[in-house]
Amino acid sequence: MSVKRLAWPAATLAVAAAVLLSLAVGTRPVPLSEVLNALLHGGSSPDALVVRSLRLPRTEIGLTAGAALGVAGAALQAVTRNPLADPGILGLSQGAAAGVVLGIATGLANGFSGYVWYAFAGAVLAACLVYGIAARGRGGASPVKLALAGTALSAMTAGGTTVVLTSSSAALDQFRFWQVGSLSGRDADTVVEMLPFLAAGALLVLACARGLDALALGDETARALGHRVGVVRVCAALGATLLVASAVAAAGPIAFVGLAVPHLARRLTSGRHRSLLPLSALLGAALLVGADVAGRVVRAPAEVPAGVMTALVGVPVLVVLVRRKGTAV
């Protein structure tokens, strides 16, 4: 019980620590006092400019995208009743990214507000394709089938992109920029533009929280408890897809945040989604911001995209989960 009581303060502390590190650590050494000074009083010294115009926006994007991915992962795991569901593994992130690349290549999308619709369309398409295919036939959407369908979709997208890029290399620059999830160099007002989408997605998922609890007991029981199983699934999945799409549009495809975070959250709190979802949001934010900080440090002065770092952190979690006895693989 004591662990569970400590969960909220601990998660909040983790977020605070990640934010502090994100503001204080980078390729440019800025003393902590300067950081605080810049935040509180502004100023136009180079150090203050770095903190306010570069580190603050990327921290904000990290917080929001991480929270979105954490909530989306928890929701997807409940909807698919599958401990390995993750926007990256299911191919949602890649679908969203492919949508964005398509938007860029055709010259129709520009900036976050343009990207997000393409990301959303791509993610919805990928979700339908992967889940629709995996759920068909014997055994339903088992983790193996979902993972393989996601892998196949990613490989297909990659193959198609390579062929397109071989024939017209003009799109190469923008594609490279988008290919790996990263928090750097994104527009500062991206966060503001993201908020409506995030809010809509989060509300949709949270509204289904009790339904998601019931889903864990099985469709029959959920129905007996008076939940409309189909509605809950569609609403939660739609909300999760919206969250993933806005995270990808802002930061590019970032894998494994949605996988690792809900499992940690489940350890720390009761299985109830009303507390599981917000806790996943906090932990997701802490993880992504932390991964971004690590990416700035490991290969300094070059930066490693946050998406690469989260994959390296997330895979051990996946391996442990797969080895766990209870995981029905």
Partner: peptide
Amino acid sequence: SEDIGAESIDKADGDWIFYSVQGDADKTD
């Protein structure tokens, strides 16, 4: 060549800067 991060770009200051952008500057970082 050596990588330089966005936050230490002022390290590259000099009397003159000659910079190039590969591809479309508006669409990359």
